[in-house]
């Protein structure tokens, strides 16, 4: 059995009301959205693979809070939370999950392959590790074009073993590219625990031989994420090259919907959920510091439920793509 996620050691900053409530809202939106996606999958409305982000909400919520207009984001297939955190429309995300015309890829991509140029979200990639060099290339384009934007490249602990990750690390450091590598270490790659797949399990050290600074972060604490994220983003934005953040986090659900998750004990999941949940943790702090009452938070919950229900309804009402869509988007026409 893997060693349990970082023991509870919450940062206890004085919370600002707007900020705290925004994080709460963003995390609850992801949680409720994912629960609904799981339900729609169970009903056969979502097909294929569907990887839920439940448990990891603080990572993307805290990191996205460090970005500014024009910064880019790229991740793997566990991507629904990232899209919501990029402010993409829950309707469009859910409708892509159901494979409908109203989805971000007009039904042609599915859960693992979704993009939004408008929101600078570059996918949604089904091949483990592929997003890492691509994210590095986005950072290359920023530097080339003289923009002060950074790219966040998210990937898992399992992905951290792919060779192309290290090829990218080397180039990023050599050329001082503005990219932040966010390793979402949820302790398992499918059924294989970090101890069983990594010789160096402290993944933030994986950049050492490339001279990339790295840091371990409590990924269950949105404020800890935000703090580390700001430092890393500042580093990259100021032209000092890449940075690695290893987020210690946990996924509550199976790897995908069809994973019976026999490789870990139910108690391990329950323990983290009841003692280290990112949403409950923030809620406690909000209430303890009198930022908002339980009732205020309940009102937010209700609002979120309505947004998610609306997204689900939309995703079922939206029609399947027009048959003509089969043939579009294979190649672009050459400009005359």
């Amino acid at each position: 059995m893997a060693k349990a996620a970082t023991p509870k050691r919450r940062s206890s900053p004085k919370l600002k009301k707007d900020e705290a409530l925004k994080y709460y809202r963003d995390m609850v939106l992801i949680r409720r959205f994912e629960e609904r996606a799981g339900q729609l999958y169970g009903m056969g409305k979502i097909a294929g693979f569907c990887h839920l982000y439940i448990g990891q909400e603080a990572v993307v919520t805290g990191m996205q809070a460090c970005l500014k207009e024009g910064d880019q984001v790229i991740t793997g297939y566990r991507d629904h939370g990232h899209m919501l955190a990029c402010d993409m429309d829950p309707r469009g995300v859910m409708a892509e999950l159901t494979g409908r015309a109203g989805g971000y890829s007009r039904g042609k991509g599915g859960s693992m392959h979704m993009f939004s140029r408008e929101k600078n979200f570059f996918g949604g990639h089904g091949i483990v590790g592929a997003q890492v060099p691509i994210g590095t290339g986005l950072a290359f384009s920023n530097k080339y074009l003289g923009k002060d934007n950074v790219c966040l490249a998210y990937f898992g602990d399992g992905a951290a073993n792919q060779g192309q990750v290290y090829e990218a690390f080397n180039m990023a450091s050599l050329w001082e590219l503005p990219v932040i590598y966010v390793i979402e270490n949820n302790m398992y790659a499918m059924g294989t625990s970090v101890e069983r797949h990594a010789s160096e399990t402290e993944l933030y050290k994986r950049g050492i031989s490339f001279e990339i600074a790295g840091e371990e972060v409590d990924g269950m604490d949105v404020y800890a994420v935000k703090k580390a994220g700001e430092k890393a983003v500042k580093h990259a934005r100021s032209g000092r090259g890449p940075y690695i953040l290893e987020m210690k986090t946990y996924r509550y659900r199976g790897h995908s919907m069809s994973d019976p998750a026999k490789y870990r004990k139910r108690e391990e999941v329950d323990d983290i959920r009841s003692h280290n949940d990112p949403i409950d943790g923030l809620k406690e702090q909000i209430v303890a510091q009198n930022i908002a009452s339980e009732e205020d938070l309940k009102a937010i919950d209700k609002e979120i439920r309505a947004i998610v229900k609306d997204a689900a309804d939309f995703s079922l009402e939206s029609p399947e793509p027009d048959p003509a869509e089969l043939w579009t988007d294979v190649l672009l026409p050459v400009e005359a």
Binding site: A47, G107, P321, V330
Partner: peptide, 16 residues
């Protein structure tokens, strides 16, 4: 198979 990357949507996948 039709000369397109395989689409996700059920109806398009069937066609393809």
């Amino acid at each position: 198979q039709n000369e397109v990357p395989l689409p996700y949507a059920g109806n398009l996948e069937d066609m393809s």
